[in-house]
Design a protein around this nucleic acid. Structure first.
Lengths: 113, 113
DNA sequence: GGCAGGTACCTTGTAGCGCATGGTACTTCC
DNA sequence: GGAAGTACCATGCGCTACAAGGTACCTGCC
């Protein structure tokens, strides 16, 4: 999938450390598989992402114990690995939401004044 | 200078691509030198930074042409290299402020809902 | 049958940036 | 003259987003 913005544009750097929590947020409402997550992140403009980003990211989330996975057959293609938010993943998400809030206001204060 | 949070904590990743524009923002009101910038960023909580971060960062800003520099003698210590925001630096800063606004609202939409 | 295209998974290598660490040099104070 | 503070800088590492490429399954078309 070809994306606008280039490899290491400014926006790309912004995603660092945030993208994983956006994925966790998308998983709050139920299990999803990787391809589906890529599409949803592309729909949410400014978060357009490729598979090369998502798969390693999901692998890290699994290692952290923030998601659990289960294979399911698909009627329209190859089998899918579905990701589900765990309890500790939910905690990590709400912890990050707090951090994000304070960080955001710090940056806003600097930029806006 | 020893900082809390560790080398590669979550907050550290958040700063990526943002820190340089916070520095530009600090330079809006007049020239400053590196050590001064470190102190001001430390005062602004959540942006505590060390010299090992600032000096390469300022070097990049200079290469981009976003800041210009001039040496000035100090009466209380070694000479200081003062950094001044250029016209293109000012443009880059306001461009980023727009990007930051849309990015912020995108993330907020995902996290808050 | 065979081939193109879509779906879905994954790996490998690269690059950038923040950070830890360490080094140099000047000044002040004890 | 030694310690502490100020001020500069360089080197090496680790994390993460991305590009590029690879495998396998299914459908539809010729």
């Amino acid at each position: 999938m070809v994306l606008p913005g280039g490899a290491h544009s400014g926006v790309s750097q912004l995603r660092r450390g945030i993208l994983q929590f956006c994925v966790l947020a998308l998983l709050r409402d139920g299990e999803k598989y990787a391809f589906e997550l890529v599409r949803e992140l592309c729909d949410a403009h400014d978060l357009a992402t490729s598979e090369g980003t998502i798969y390693p990211l999901l692998s890290r989330l699994r290692k952290e114990g923030w998601v659990s996975t289960a294979w399911q057959e698909s009627e329209t293609g190859p089998p899918r690995r579905y990701y589900t938010l765990t309890a500790s993943g939910r905690t990590a998400l709400s912890d990050f939401a707090r951090e994000w809030g304070t960080f955001k206001s710090t940056v806003d204060k600097l930029l806006d004044q």
